[in-house]
């Protein structure tokens, strides 16, 4: 069992390192139409200087809504977990 764990870990680490070495070079990202559109049109459409803020709250606002829901669910489950704990 221990040997299988070690073998799995070594194979997985080898896979990760091989992927890291074979990945596209750092500093030359794949050209993406979406990112160019965001950079060129964020000031005109969302009137925001911060392109990341315009993506987070305007273009992909549904992501932010889901993420706020995740945070709310975590908080309410933590409060629920410690509900019966003695004061």
């Amino acid at each position: 069992m221990e040997l299988a764990k070690i073998a799995f870990f070594l194979i997985f680490t080898y896979f990760l390192l091989a992927c890291a070495l074979l990945l596209r070079p750092f500093g030359k990202p794949a050209v993406s139409d979406m990112d160019e559109y965001f950079i060129l049109n964020a000031q005109r459409e969302a009137a925001s200087n911060n392109v990341v803020a315009s993506i987070v709250f305007d273009y992909r606002g549904l992501d932010t809504l889901g993420e706020a829901t995740v945070l709310f669910a975590a908080v309410s489950s933590i409060v629920l977990l410690f509900r019966g704990a003695p004061k």
Binding site: A46, S48, A53, S54
Partner: peptide, 9 residues
């Protein structure tokens, strides 16, 4: 500027 973004922030 930026419309609803500061309010959402």
């Amino acid at each position: 500027t930026a419309g609803v973004i500061p309010l959402m922030n």
